[in-house]
Simulated assay, not measured.
Amino acid sequence: MRIVIAGGSGFIGQKLTQFLINKGHEIVILTRKDKHPSEKITFIKWLVEGASPEQEIKSADVFINLAGVSINDGRWTQKHQKQIYESRMKATDELIRMIKALSEKPSVLINASAIGIYPASVKKIYTEKSLEKANDFLGKTVSDWENKAEQVKSLSIRTAMMRFGVVLGNEGGALPLMVLPYKLFAGGTVGSGEQWVSWVHVTDVVRSIAFAIENDKINGPVNVTAPSPSRMKDFGKTIGSVLHRPHWLPVPAFAMKLALGQKSALVLEGQHVIPKVLLDQGFEFKFPSLHKALEDLLTSK
């Protein structure tokens, strides 16, 4: 298949690109920067003055939208929040414009999303059928992002909203910062420790995207989280166990709020999310347990 990826140079995008190439697919990456041509990847300019990427794409089977400023980088200042929000809206608007301009439409749009759309709770369990939506910054951003992407449904294009949980990987995401205190022998429970961490290994993120491309029954929201979420205190203890480091120094909520501001909600609050759609469709997680996932990431050579 010919697959167009927006956000292909990011943490998830790079791994996804390599995975799809290994599967024999033809990859087109939309980029703002000049890239050296590759035997297996076509780079096409977009979101820059004078660019008309649809004229170069001409046709594609799949569009994947991972584009947007990372929520993990920097403090959530008002300026940074605006960049996070607007980067997603602008990229999705441009993708929709491009798809409408193509004479041959893709059969599916895979759009990144996040479990931040669900309200934080220590008691509730969320599946894709849960209708509650968070009214904070992240909840609004994700909700507006999904609503915008769903516009392609009017073109009879299947649309899957991949609601990523806390993605675990060594090259990006939250894990390097979560692991650092343990490497310094200063790890411990963050906040109350009762908040849920609905995590997922980056390998399973990539595999789930490929699964959604191939499975035409997958439509609408898809929770991309491992089937065994963990309380934050247990998450920390598992890091300590895998690294053979103590789990002893608590990090109070006020300290996290002081250090991270509004962004502290990413670690002080959480959601218990179950990937019901993936499980119902027969997706098999390579890393269903936290200990196995962390062993792979923290001890593999």
Rank of each mutant, 00 (worst) to 15 (best):
R2E: 12
V4R: 01
A6K: 02
G13I: 00
Q14A: 07
K15H: 02
Q18V: 06
F19T: 06
L20W: 11
G24V: 11
G24S: 07
E26K: 15
V28Q: 05
R32Q: 06
L47T: 00
L47K: 02
V48Q: 06
V48D: 00
S52P: 00
P53G: 11
P53A: 12
D61Q: 04
D61L: 08
V62P: 03
A67Q: 08
S70I: 07
R75Q: 10
W76Q: 00
Y85C: 09
R88M: 04
T92D: 00
E94L: 13
L95M: 09
R97A: 14
M98G: 14
A101N: 15
L102Q: 04
V108Q: 04
N111C: 13
S113G: 12
A114P: 10
I115P: 03
I117C: 09
S121T: 09
K123E: 15
K124H: 13
I125G: 09
S130Y: 01
K133A: 09
D136N: 09
D136R: 02
K140S: 13
T141R: 05
A149I: 11
A149D: 10
E150Y: 14
I157D: 05
I157L: 03
R158T: 05
R158M: 01
A160L: 00
M161D: 07
M161Y: 12
L168P: 13
G169A: 01
G173I: 11
G173C: 08
A174V: 15
L175M: 14
P176S: 11
Y182A: 11
Y182H: 11
L184M: 15
L184Q: 09
G188E: 02
T189N: 00
V190N: 06
G193Q: 13
Q195C: 07
V197P: 08
S198N: 10
S198W: 08
V200P: 06
H201K: 11
R207N: 12
S208L: 05
I213H: 02
D216E: 15
I218L: 04
I218P: 01
P221T: 08
V222C: 03
N223P: 03
P227K: 01
S230I: 04
D234R: 02
F235H: 11
I239G: 04
I239H: 09
G240P: 08
H244Q: 15
A255I: 12
L258A: 10
Q271F: 03
H272F: 15
I274L: 15
P275H: 10
L279F: 04
D280V: 03
D280G: 01
F283M: 06
E284P: 03
F285Y: 10
H291E: 15
L298A: 10
